[in-house]
Design a binder for these strands. Sequence first.
DNA 1: GTATCGTACAACCAAATGGTTGTAGATCAG
DNA 2: CTGATCTACAACCATTTGGTTGTACGATAC
Lengths: 110, 110
Amino acid sequence: MVVDQLRDADVDRLFQALADATRRDIVRRVTVGEYSVSGLAALYDMSFAAVQKHVAVLERASLVTKEKRGREQIVRGNHEGLQKARRLLDEYEAIWRQRAGRIADILAEG
Amino acid sequence: MVVDQLRDADVDRLFQALADATRRDIVRRVTVGEYSVSGLAALYDMSFAAVQKHVAVLERASLVTKEKRGREQIVRGNHEGLQKARRLLDEYEAIWRQRAGRIADILAEG
DNA sequence: GTATCGTACAACCAAATGGTTGTAGATCAG
DNA sequence: CTGATCTACAACCATTTGGTTGTACGATAC
């Protein structure tokens, strides 16, 4: 079986991006306020380049946007990625509810 | 900054587990019905051992459970992991809503 | 009892990941 | 103009990941 292809790669990138504590922290911070990449880098015990890579991963996953302002690159939260992830998990939750419904039906008719 | 540690590793595992199309497909299937590991393996174009590893990753993330029945290992969906992931993303959504609230306040007072 | 089935697990491999340092180009401050 | 700052990106490295094959062992079928 080949699962879906095009869409799957996006979803992979999305959850992959969320699977790192530093990246999740970045997402929270830039949702509340604006940060430059170096402003973010100052917060963590790792190199600027490492943080830069994390931001790039988040950007490709649509969890964050970057906008050039002078020599700085301003990072902001991107609601799109988060909404997509939530919708995905909602679909899974719906499968659970269907299952619960079927079980209830069986109990009712039995 | 060190983000949180103990809890973070769990969350990492959870989203990491979701960041693979085959594993997401397994989650959907075993939520609807029961499958043995070899029953699952028959569905995908990869070795039994590969599927076995995917199931192990999902089990460690609390997205599925395994139960021995005779010589088979029955895999079922585990709601716990999904709920945890959804709650996590709900927290992020809450940050967006707080932000929207602050912006509305500023507009109202201005 | 013996062959088969389902599973576990080790060893191995290529590719991806998360980090580093170093270099170079814009932009800003003085 | 010059120097400092912010960013981009390449090269490199160790570890993890996702896959493979092979071996071993308990449970089942005949």
